[in-house]
Design a binder for these strands. Structure first.
Length: 802
DNA sequence: GCCAACGTTGGC
DNA sequence: GCCAACGTTGGC
């Protein structure tokens, strides 16, 4: 009985001991983590540079640098990119120092056995005896190495001098996360490992405990030659410096410290091991345990800053890996119908985290991708603002968001649903009241969100923080604003009463067909009131593109049937005070849009302005000013018409019967076009007079300067760079004389997309060197040629060498 | 080491 | 309330 009690006491003491260690671990780690996340001056890169070490919970070690201007670099790649004038090829990112290759290859050691290792050596990590060469050295005891004056060749001129550092306290904890615990070594006849699993050196190293090792000792300061210091030097820093001879060896300050090779032996069998110093303890390959020993103490992270003792498998007997495999195997076996069912039940986004315990999954990052929908499976569009922000597309990585085109179609509808599943498949569970909040939370396309109250009528017209203001034109006094043009019947104006500007009149909804997140269906953009409540005359339509198979079906079926009509307005635009709308985005947007090469397309809505005030647009975007009102007589010169002006009407109608037609008919066509998905980059607009214009607003399109204009009676004409396309052009062959239906319009646009604008010829007049070549067209230029040709026959005949 | 992108926060 | 910016984390 006494023995039993004694054993119980012993066991309880051990438990208390372990708990004590755990508490120490966590406290020390928090301290270290907090301190290491601070920015430290880093004169190695120059004055004003800072460096920061970040240790993740997983134990991964990251290093960040901050330029004097405050730019943060998280990888060497970015650092090099932004410092093209400096040769950073030999810059060791992790340590923050310039690596001299010749020195780095040498091992340096002191005669007392204080071998130093390559910083890249895995043994440098916690648990390595060799990385702690100076247990027994007093602070401040060092030896000078022969490489102390090494200068790296790539640092010249005014670059900071090489460091001449001194480690005042070589003892430093490195990896203190519980995850970093090394497995306990099982040695039959060796010393018992301590809590860290390290086999303490026999002689002459001092005894040390895990508490000592993890004690929050001051990290070694490194003194540079110029007097500055690199505080809190890491293990990597120290060893790199040692390798380069830029700092002193951590052993006693002896004078005969010379580089030499290591010759050591196995701690178990005694056999020699090349590269290991005699007296140093290690195990030869044959004596090493075959398998990674099982961790005795396992900390499991269950949330931010929360850990539990014990491994998951001990709870349910199944490792995470196995459960992952099982889960994904089950996923693969699921038929598509099962997917639908999952969607119904909101399970379609269940990943391995969900299988884990609930608490854990709550605290982890949620996956926003179902990995199955079209958006999840596609690649970055490379054109949306999020893509443009990415470093791989030349961006500054400020936004750090997933490509807008890749925003999961399913996930975006399920999360944030306040408990109600928004099911896009059935539409049965849609929680209408959540949609607006939902859209605001997800990174949808600008035009996928509605214009909201409070958005200015001029300048940046869109949600969120105001973009850089357009400097294309100064604000025009009210007295000089454009005169209203006669309102064309059917123009979409906002309802009276400014307070409720968000709401759409019911009657307007009949025409203004608003759309929810509609997977690339047509979006309508309607002008709203300006700040004075004046109607901005005219309406603007951007018929966005999508998979062309959807077009012209006249089908306005929403994917989400129960969704409240969702107003969409002009987004991603600059609205000038005079009411002009300047599109700064190419409004091709559908998830399924394809460009001419078949690649999916996306929207560009950055709205950034360059120094000259011109929006910075990608190459395929052109600024289109939509004229929404007739200019005042005294202000005509200020109107900068960018779009082609058609001065002559070419009627293709046979005879003159019904030449006037009906505005109502034209309006009906306009309405249909607004509901229709048009070919890529074709944008419909109405103009002051009762007519409809469709223009190609992508510079990358071969139809960049082409306009299709439909007049009363559905008479139409095509113009290229303000030049009317002659009736003799083959494009007209076999085509109806009137474009009275959407399908006819779309067919014509598609045919136009197969053509290209004639490049003309460089002319015959001699031109001085470096003078830009101005092409001219032949008198009978055909304007549009097959896309495979550069110029028409007439212009080809006019080539100088022709 | 690097990248992708989730989640938070502070400014507007 | 909204979103740009960015800290942070997980994956490769």
């Amino acid at each position: 009985m006494f023995e039993l009690l004694s054993r119980s006491n012993c066991f309880l003491r051990q438990i208390a001991h372990v708990c004590e260690y755990v508490t120490l671990f966590l406290n020390v780690f928090r301290n270290i983590s907090r301190r290491r996340h601070a920015w430290l001056d880093w004169p190695v890169l120059g004055a004003g540079w800072k460096r920061k070490e970040v240790i993740r919970w997983s134990g991964v070690h990251d290093v960040h640098y901050m330029s004097p201007r405050g730019h943060v670099f998280r990888s060497k790649l970015k650092l090099v990119k932004s410092n093209k004038h400096t040769d950073l090829r030999k810059f060791h990112y992790a340590s923050g120092l310039f690596l001299d290759e010749s020195d780095a290859m040498k091992d340096i050691e002191c005669p007392d056995g204080g071998a130093l290792v390559d910083p890249s050596d895995p043994s440098e990590r916690i648990g390595s005896v060799t990385s702690m060469p100076s247990w027994n050295s007093a602070p401040g005891d060092f030896c000078e190495t022969p490489h102390s004056s090494t200068q790296t060749p790539q640092r010249r001129g005014s670059s900071p001098p090489r460091p001449s550092q001194t480690f005042r306290n070589p003892l430093h904890p490195t990896k203190a996360s519980p995850l970093g615990l090394s497995p306990a070594r099982q040695s039959a006849d060796g010393p018992l490992p301590n809590l860290l699993g390290r086999v303490p050196p026999q002689t002459p190293s001092p005894t040390f405990t895990s508490i000592q090792l993890l004690a929050p000792t001051r990290r070694p300061d490194i003194t540079m030659r110029n007097g500055s210091s690199l505080p809190n030097g890491s293990v990597a820093v120290k060893n790199l410096l040692l390798h380069q001879g830029r700092i002193e060896c951590s052993m006693a300050r002896s004078t005969d410290c010379q580089p030499r090779r290591h010759v050591g032996g196995c701690a178990k069998c005694g056999s020699d091991i090349p590269g290991i110093e005699a007296g140093e303890e290690t195990l030869c390959p044959s004596c090493r345990p075959d398998k990674k020993p099982k961790q005795r103490i396992v900390f499991r992270k269950v949330g931010q800053g929360r850990w539990v003792l014990g491994r998951t498998s001990e709870v349910d007997g199944m490792t995470q890996q196995r459960r992952k495999r099982k889960y994904w195997t089950m996923q693969k076996k699921r038929p598509s119908l099962q997917d639908a069912h999952d969607s119904d039940t909101g399970d379609c986004f269940k990943d391995e985290d969900d299988i884990d315990d609930d608490e854990q999954s709550r605290n982890r990052r949620h996956r926003r991708a179902c990995l199955r929908c079209a958006a999840c499976l596609r690649k970055d569009c490379g054109k949306c603002d999020f893509c443009m922000d990415k470093p791989k597309f030349g961006g500054s990585n400020k936004k750090r968001q997933k490509c807008r085109m890749r925003q999961c179609q399913n996930q975006a509808m399920v999360r944030e649903s306040t408990g109600t599943n928004l099911n896009h498949l059935t539409g049965k569970h849609t929680l209408v009241s959540d949609w607006r909040a939902l859209f605001s939370q997800w990174h949808l396309l600008p035009h996928q969100k509605g214009r909201r109250k409070g958005m200015p009528s001029t300048g940046w017209v869109g949600p969120g923080r105001r973009r850089k203001a357009s400097r294309l034109k100064p604000s025009r006094p009210r007295s000089k604003r454009k005169r209203r043009r006669p309102i064309w019947e059917g123009d979409f104006t906002d309802e009276e009463g400014g307070d409720d500007g968000d709401k759409v009149k019911e009657e307007d909804l009949n025409v203004k067909k608003s759309y929810g997140y509609n997977h690339g269906k047509t979006r309508n953009y309607s002008l709203k009131k300006d700040e004075d409540g004046d109607d901005l005359e005219g309406a603007f339509e951007a018929a966005l593109t999508s998979d062309f198979s959807d077009q012209d079906n006249g089908d306005d079926t929403f994917v989400f049937e129960n969704v409240e009509p969702y107003e969409l307005s002009i987004q991603g635009c600059f609205t000038a005070p005079n009411g002009d709308v300047e599109m700064v985005a190419s409004f091709q947007s559908s998830l399924n849009s394809r460009d001419q090469t078949g690649e999916p397309l996306a929207v560009d809505g950055t709205g950034e302005l360059s120094s000259n005030g011109i929006p910075q647009l990608s190459d395929d975007v052109v600024v289109v000013r939509v004229d929404v009102g007739a200019p005042a007589e005294d202000d005509v010169t200020e109107v900068d018409e960018v779009t082609p002006v058609i001065t002559q009407i070419f009627s293709l109608a046979e005879g003159t019967q019904d030449i006037q037609g009906s505005e109502a008919d034209l309006l009906q066509l306009l309405e249909s076009l607004r509901r229709t998905v048009l070919p890529v980059h074709w944008v419909g607009r109405d103009v002051p007079r009762p007519m409809l214009q469709l223009l190609q607003c992508s510079k990358r399109s071969t139809m960049a300067d082409t306009t299709l204009q439909i007049e009363l009676g559905f008479l139409y004409q095509i113009s290229v760079q303000n030049q009317p396309l002659l009736l003799t052009h083959p494009l007209y062959e076999g085509r109806p004389s009137r474009l009275s239906s959407v399908s006819q319009v779309v067919a014509l646009l598609l045919d136009l997309e197969r053509l290209a604008v004639c490049q003309g010829h460089p002319g015959l007049a001699p031109r001085p060197d470096r003078e830009p070549v101005l092409c001219v067209r032949a008198a009978a230029c055909q304007l549009l040629v097959p896309a495979s040709q550069e110029r028409c026959d007439k212009c080809r005949d006019s080539l100088p060498d022709a």
